[in-house]
Design a protein around this nucleic acid. Structure first.
Lengths: 334, 334
DNA sequence: AGCATCAATGTTAACGCAAACACTGCCATT
DNA sequence: AATGGCAGTGTTTGCGTTAACATTGATGCT
């Protein structure tokens, strides 16, 4: 028994399938009484429009493709969830296309998979340079938005304001009385890392503070732990801003093992506000990006392109907020 | 300029569109020379088959729908990522359908959204009773697999062996010399919670140990912290098994604040092995579920149904492994 | 009254593809 | 030489939908 199609509904309601289509798509010129009859027939048959057929005839499906690398990380996972929810509210489904690397080939392959499905638009979470390059070379026949992509690139972009977030974090530490702030950074090829470094450096320079060398890491607690072990041995370090919360966690443990108390001896600030950051030892002061806002902005940009075919250097920035907890204090008296 | 269709390829290759179709779908009876000509034409035009058209004519798209509640949590996020990857390898795309609640209505709505797209199959991450009930009442015209669903239900199911994992965790604590083990559990309506409670209780009973009352919580570090504050005040508590790692994190902090050292005074074991568990203070002994294996099993079951229409009480269980770190030690001498 | 207008509805033609069926040679068998 | 089978290919049909166009009947205007 195949599922009912539009003609079945039409037959039951005593109208043509086209009228059913009009009811379904909210066209104006349908008599109220007819509309009700059709809707009753739809309900009675449990009819559900076939999106594939609609996609075929309109050339676009009501699906948005998302390309991301590692949806296990807190940031991407949150973003994906927010995108899905926002898209659902706008009547779109979300199809995920994970990708092992953010190199040219993987990105193109993922995008083309989405293209084969005739998605209405694509959101690429493209935090590294190579991703941006890959996208620029893509056939531009589908609405595209990048998130956390290349701020200097030509592709419509939504991004968390890394710079202002990092600035706020650093300023917060300076305000507490620290002479300077060290920074444990994320992977060097991520734009997120670059932005956070930039904001940190700006805040220091603005305050006339010395700018220590960046301590390079990745996003993992493991790397944070390694860097923390080093920082713990340097008595002049009294304040650390890490590029994310997991790095902070690693740093916290290293400091703890070396007997350096937080915040009494060293203050620490993270980035992301993962849900458990409030339960680190001590509770972590951190910067919270608004993923829902990023998702909304991305969809806005995408829908704007879908509906009006304007492709321009669209850009949207979402400001994060500082969440103050107990991991920051005054520097120790010398 | 619309994108090329099969007929365009056919014209260029000097064959009929049907031959192009045969080449695309790997049908045998095509001369090698013809195949090459067609493939050359495909490459030249940059032709890409229209999945929507294929879905229309075959009645099934090469898409698998996933229904999940909160893909921000580590477990669901990992599972989703693993599913996506496994599905991609089998030539399927994954469409996500998040759901705010796991009640009847939300689940049905999400499933029906997927049905409208004529997905080939649906994976429901359905860890609570109400989800199972909703699914049983659904029209059974699409292959369906639940993950972490009702072990007693009639729907094909893949599940992490919560019981054996919890048993191993508890046994590990008993082996370290503890007289008994306390358990901080997850939300009471989750099957995961129930399974972990069951395994914990089994291990205690098998060892002839006293079974303390379950300490009820949810999955959050906040709840873990609250329970930890209580447990910290009870001198007889020397070993705690928490239903997940974030609970353990909260417990660890509460214990730390009360001056109870881990593992010297109290031992703690978690569940999930989140990436940062190794950097808790101290590094957390925990149970690691194999999400990739769960994803593979789910897809196996789904593809089996898709290909052969066998719907039976299929069931697959994936055993987790204990990861030993430093949060477990011998109980303090009295 | 006659005609234009317009709302409400129906009819037809795509969209791109795969399945069913039909056709064409060629080869092996009788 | 006639027959049958079969590999290789083409033709036709229909999937469920929307868009474009066609039709109908009622209304308002001159």
């Amino acid at each position: 028994m195949r599922s009912p199609a539009m003609t079945d509904v039409a037959r039951l309601a005593g109208v043509s399938h086209q009228t059913v289509s009009r009811v379904l798509n909210g066209h104006p010129n349908v008599r109220e009484q007819t509309r009700l009859r059709v809707q009753a027939a739809i309900a009675e048959l449990g009819y559900r429009p076939n999106r594939a057929a609609r996609a075929l005839v309109t050339g676009r499906s009501q699906v948005i493709g998302v390309v991301a690398q590692n949806t296990t990380l807190y940031g991407p996972a949150s973003l994906l969830a927010a995108l899905e929810q926002t898209a659902a509210e706008a009547g779109f489904a979300v199809s995920v296309g994970s990708v092992s690397d953010l190199d040219h080939q993987s990105i193109s392959a993922a995008v083309e998979r989405h293209l084969a499905h005739r998605v209405a638009g694509i959101v690429v979470i493209a935090p590294v340079e190579s991703a941006g390059e890959a996208l620029e070379q893509l056939p531009q026949d589908v609405p595209l938005v990048t998130v956390d992509g290349d701020p200097a690139g030509p592709i419509p972009l939504v991004t968390v304001d890394q710079v202002s977030g990092a600035r706020a974090a650093t300023q917060h530490l300076l305000d507490a009385g620290h002479r300077t702030v060290w920074h444990v950074s994320g992977p060097p090829d991520w734009f997120d890392s670059a932005g956070r470094i930039e904001g940190w450096r700006e805040a220091l320079q603005l305050a006339g503070a010395e700018v220590p060398p960046v301590v390079p890491a990745d996003w993992s607690a493991a790397a944070g732990y390694r860097c923390g072990q080093m920082l713990a041995r340097m008595p002049e370090v009294t304040a650390v801003f890490t590029a994310n919360d997991h790095l902070a966690l690693g740093v916290l443990r290293a400091l703890h093992e070396h007997g350096r108390r937080v915040p009494d001896d060293i203050s620490v600030v993270g980035f992301d506000d993962v849900p458990e950051a409030a339960y680190f030892i001590p509770p972590l002061t951190t910067v919270r990006p608004d993923f829902a806002a990023v998702a909304r902005a991305s969809l806005d940009l995408l829908l704007a392109q879908i509906e009006s075919d304007v492709v321009g250097p669209l850009r949207r920035t979402v400001a994060p907020t500082l969440v103050v907890r107990r991991s920051v204090g005054a520097p120790p008296r010398r």
